[in-house]
Design a protein around this nucleic acid. Structure first.
Length: 225
DNA sequence: CACCAGGCAAGTA
DNA sequence: TACTTGCATGGT
C-alpha cells in the first residue's frame, strides 16, 4: 500500500506529463558540459549560460584538462555572459581541481563513484552547494538523486505540501522517500517542475491554464504567496 | 525604469 | 546561530 504523499506526487507527475511532452534534460553533450552548466546556471538564466558554454566549446576548452589549464582571467572572460563571472571562474577551477586531485583527472572514475561519497566530495568544493551537487549526480552521473530548486520550493509551498522552513534535505527526502529510486523519473520530474514554473508562474501569470491548477489546495499565482 | 534568473559563500551581530 | 550582502549579465 502506498502513502498519501506517494499518491500526491504521482498525481502531480501525471498532471505534468499529461500537459507537457518529455523535456529531455539535461541540455549537454557530455557529462563535463553538464557539470560546467550546473555551476554557470547558479541564480542565472539558462540562455546566458548557453552563450558561455558555446564560447568554451568552440575553442575546445570544454574538457577537464584544458579548462583546468586555462588562466582564471581568461576563463572569466569566456564565461562573462553567464554573469558572476569572476566568482564562477574560481568555482569552475575548484571543480577541475577536485577532479584532478581526487580522481587523478579521470572524469569517468569520478562518475563511477558511490553516490553518497561523491555527493559529499562535491559539497566540499567551494562553490558547489546542494542543488549544483545533485544536478551533477543526476544529470551528469545518472544517479537517482532528486534535484531541488527554488521552483520546487515555491510550487510545493503554494500547494500546501511543505512550509517555508523546510530544508533542502527535507524537501529532497519528501520526493526520494516516496518515489521509486529511478533516475529517469527524477530527471523528468525535476525538468517538468522547472518547465511549469517558467511557463505559468512568471510575470504574466497564466494560472488558469497551469497543469497544477487542479492539484489543490492553492488557487492563484504561486509567484505571489 | 525595476526586477529577476535552474545558488552559494562570506560577512555581520 | 540567524539574518544580510556580494556576485553580474541579459531579457522582460
Amino acid at each position: 500500500m502506498q502513502s498519501a504523499t506517494n499518491q500526491r506526487l504521482n498525481e502531480m507527475f501525471d498532471l505534468l506529463l499529461d500537459h507537457f511532452s518529455p523535456q529531455n534534460w539535461w541540455p549537454g553533450e557530455t557529462p563535463f558540459e553538464v557539470m560546467v552548466g550546473a555551476v554557470l546556471t547558479q541564480n542565472t538564466n539558462w540562455k546566458n549560460v548557453e552563450k558561455a558554454i558555446d564560447n568554451l566549446k568552440r575553442q575546445g576548452l570544454l574538457n577537464p584538462e584544458n579548462l583546468h589549464a586555462l588562466p582564471l582571467s581568461r576563463l572569466a572572460e569566456e564565461i562573462r555572459p553567464a554573469g558572476y563571472y569572476n566568482i564562477k571562474a574560481k568555482r569552475l577551477r575548484n571543480l577541475t581541481t577536485f577532479i584532478e586531485e581526487r580522481y587523478g583527472g579521470d572524469l569517468a572514475a569520478m562518475l563511477d563513484a558511490e553516490s553518497g561519497a561523491l555527493r559529499e566530495g562535491l559539497l566540499s568544493i567551494k562553490g558547489v552547494g546542494p542543488e549544483t551537487a545533485d544536478s551533477i549526480l543526476l544529470y551528469a552521473a545518472n544517479l537517482p538523486v532528486f534535484v531541488i530548486d527554488a521552483y520546487t520550493y515555491r510550487i510545493l509551498i503554494r500547494h500546501g505540501m511543505i512550509d517555508e522552513e523546510t530544508t533542502y534535505d527535507e524537501l529532497q527526502s519528501l520526493f526520494m522517500d516516496h518515489l521509486p529510486e529511478d533516475s529517469r523519473l527524477f530527471n523528468e520530474f525535476h525538468a517538468l517542475i522547472v518547465r511549469t514554473a517558467k511557463d505559468y508562474c512568471r510575470k504574466t501569470p497564466r494560472c488558469e491554464h497551469c497543469p497544477l491548477r487542479s492539484w489543490g489546495p492553492s488557487e492563484g499565482p504561486i509567484s505571489s504567496p
